Simulated assay, not measured.
Amino acid sequence: MSRKLVALGIVAAVALILASTSLFTVAQTQQALVLQFGEWKRTIKEPGLHAKIPFIQDVVLLDARVLDVDPPVEQVILADQKRLEVDAFARYRITEPLQFYQSVGNEMVVEQRLAATVNSALRRVLGNATLLAVLSQERARVMADIKAQVNQEARRFGVEIVDVRIRRADLPEATSQAVYDRMRSEREREAREARAQGNEQAQQIRSRAERERTVILAEAQRDSQVLRGEGDNQAIRIVAESASKNADFYAFYRSLEAYRASVRGENTQMVLSPDSEFFRYFNSMGNAQRR
């Protein structure tokens, strides 16, 4: 009885080993190649449990998802002789597993080959494009050209390029500094021109204002002299008309005004002859009192 159990155990172990080596699983994100002594037998793209001949056939699992390629930053010269440091990336999918396995073998190798291919396509396409095209709406056309060229090379590896994008396109550090210095010099030149034009306009405004001020003062002085002359003329005319009506009274009034102006201070001293014409009215008043 024990021998039968041992025999059954051995058979079960052998069956388990045969089952484990003859069955394999292909995940949803995978595809598989079945090789017999290194020779291709079949390609499996459907996920699930599959079988192979144990110890004779091997299975190579490949990724069925969209994979990324991140080439190193490449410095390219554009058609207008501008230098750009371009950081691009690509996405690819393995479409021909057998061709992929025979040409490159694994994903690490194909990523290296595709990185070199992407950078070569960047140099060729961007070498015929201007900086304006790279930075404008024409960038989509440039990307399409790069993708088409990369795809031509990628088909040899059994892969398809899904997309190629430029992540960043910058001027080299030295060029950026030169552009910054040139922009700064240009802005400083424009500032100097603006200040010079402002000073010129300010000088013109000041000169015009000074000229207008001189004209206004001259006209005001002329008008004031005219008005003053008219006033003096009118005053003389009024005085003359008044004096013509009563000359003796006017003379007497003028003499009183002169007396008031002469003896305005408290210690006023005057040295005059008694018979001076200045005191003729005092003399006439004295003669009248004596009479």
Rank of each mutant, 00 (worst) to 15 (best):
M1I: 06
R3T: 09
L5I: 10
L8M: 10
G9Y: 08
L16F: 14
L16T: 13
V26T: 05
Q30R: 09
L33M: 05
F37L: 10
I44D: 07
P47T: 02
P47C: 06
L49T: 06
L49M: 09
A51V: 15
A51P: 07
A51R: 11
K52Y: 01
F55M: 04
F55A: 05
L62F: 07
R65A: 12
D68Y: 08
V69G: 00
P72W: 03
P72R: 06
E74G: 03
Q75A: 07
L78M: 06
D80L: 05
A88P: 01
A88G: 00
A90N: 00
R91Q: 13
R91S: 02
Q102L: 13
S103H: 03
V104K: 00
M108E: 14
V110D: 02
L114W: 01
L114Q: 00
V118Q: 01
L126Q: 00
L126Y: 01
G127D: 08
G127N: 08
N128S: 15
A133M: 06
L135N: 14
Q137N: 09
R141I: 11
M143L: 11
M143N: 07
A144P: 04
A144T: 06
Q149T: 03
V150R: 02
Q152I: 09
A154R: 02
A154H: 01
G158W: 03
V159D: 00
V159T: 01
D163K: 02
V164H: 00
I166L: 03
R168F: 07
L171P: 00
P172E: 05
E173N: 08
Q177N: 08
Q177G: 04
Q177K: 06
Y180I: 07
Y180P: 02
D181R: 05
D181A: 09
S185P: 07
A191M: 12
E193D: 12
A196K: 06
Q197W: 12
Q197V: 05
Q201G: 04
A202P: 04
A202D: 10
I205V: 15
A209V: 11
R211E: 13
E212I: 10
R213A: 15
T214S: 13
E219C: 06
D223P: 06
D223L: 14
S224L: 15
G229C: 12
E230N: 12
G231V: 10
D232N: 11
N233M: 10
Q234H: 10
I238K: 08
V239T: 15
V239P: 05
V239D: 13
A243Y: 08
A243V: 07
N246T: 05
N246M: 06
A247C: 05
A247G: 11
D248G: 12
F249T: 07
F252H: 06
F252T: 00
S255A: 12
R260N: 11
M270E: 14
F279S: 04
Y281M: 03
N283Y: 11
N283L: 14
M285T: 11
N287Y: 10
R290A: 14
R290D: 13
